[in-house]
């Protein structure tokens, strides 16, 4: 809480960014305490990693300090006091923290907890609900992520000419030998860990969303240490954009296959020789699609932001 208030008070945006990173890590801690291991996993990778990085890249483009004038400060205080009062009044009727008899635990959740073992056959209930019971939602969210990737591409896309590439400047981190060696040692385990998270999501915390973000983080680390140009030679941006679309396509085609075999959209039971086996295949493929889309959209976003930075530096010098 105090970290959030510090974010509000500081005018140095760099400090504020670092504080939001810390705040994300702390809230990941909250999520572990409240039994949401999958969520904590995602928040730690996304909030403390990718989000902080994107904020920093934007600050590089827009300047580090905000102006000191805050004309709306009084009105803002009034508005938030009124809203806080209303929320306080509304929350008084809510069930107490950790109450097993709360209405939220009476509706569909008991069914997920009691029957997902025989219906879907996976120990991690979060994965069963995510990919099977609520497959439509997850499909929609994958499409939203894909659309956001397209949006960033449309806003920031910048094609560099051949000459730019040949005159590629040395990466800023190139002289730091310790960073270089350590990241070289770290990147392969990170990629491997991402794959583990991807394919082990059925049994432990993890799944396509987390794996995608971790995979992208490894490549982004490489880009930060060795420079964008080298990375773009290894990871072709056209391939990444294609992969972002391919992930959505994989997800949707699972649905089409089950439609064509006479079942409902995204009903996985036709994919294997019996229903539970089909569920296994369906979830594996769908999570793979999610992972591919998330990883490539994160990379698309990062590449576009950082090539903007390069472009602006070129035009200044």
């Amino acid at each position: 809480m105090s970290v959030a208030i510090a974010v509000a008070r500081t005018r140095d945006l760099f400090a504020a960014t670092m504080l939001t990173g810390i705040y994300s890590l702390l809230s990941a801690g909250f999520f572990v305490v409240m039994d949401a291991v999958d969520v904590a996993f995602t928040e730690a990778a996304v909030g403390a990693g990718i989000s902080t990085l994107l904020m920093l890249t934007t600050l590089k483009l827009t300047g580090q300090y905000e102006s000191s004038s805050r004309p709306l400060q009084r009105i803002a205080l009034v508005v938030i006091s009124v809203t806080a009062g209303l929320l306080f009044y509304g929350f008084l009727d809510m069930p107490i923290f950790g109450d097993p008899a709360a209405p939220i635990h009476q509706h569909v959740a008991p069914r997920y907890i009691q029957h997902s073992a025989e219906e879907v056959g996976m120990p991690n209930i979060v994965t069963s609900v995510l990919a099977s019971y609520r497959g439509y939602d997850t499909f929609g969210e994958t499409v939203v992520i894909f659309t956001a990737g397209i949006g960033v591409l449309a806003l920031l896309s910048y094609v560099r000419s051949r000459e730019d590439v040949s005159q590629a400047a040395l990466a800023p981190m190139q002289p730091h030998i310790i960073l270089r060696i350590v990241s070289k040692i770290l990147i392969p385990p990170i990629l491997l860990f991402a794959l583990y998270v991807q394919f082990h999501g059925d049994y432990g915390p993890g799944g396509g969303f987390q794996a995608g973000v971790i995979f992208a983080a490894a490549i982004i680390l490489y880009a930060m240490i060795f420079g964008l140009d080298v990375t773009l030679k290894v990871v072709n941006p056209a391939v990444i954009q294609f992969l972002a679309a391919l992930g959505v396509l994989i997800y949707a085609s699972v649905g089409i296959v089950s439609l064509l075999s006479g079942h409902a959209f995204l009903d996985y039971s036709v994919l294997g020789h019996d229903a539970v086996h089909g569920q296994h295949w369906g979830i594996l493929i769908v999570e793979l699609g999610v992972g591919i889309t998330v990883a490539s959209v994160m990379l698309v976003i990062f590449f576009n932001f950082s090539s903007r930075v390069d472009k602006n530096q070129d035009s200044h010098s």
């Binding site: 969520v39 995602t42 990718i50 939602d137 969210e141 939203v144 956001a148 969303f209 976003i301």
Partner: peptide
Amino acid sequence: LTAIVVGIATTA
């Protein structure tokens, strides 16, 4: 879980 990843995409 999905909201976090969608959140970062929209923030971006």
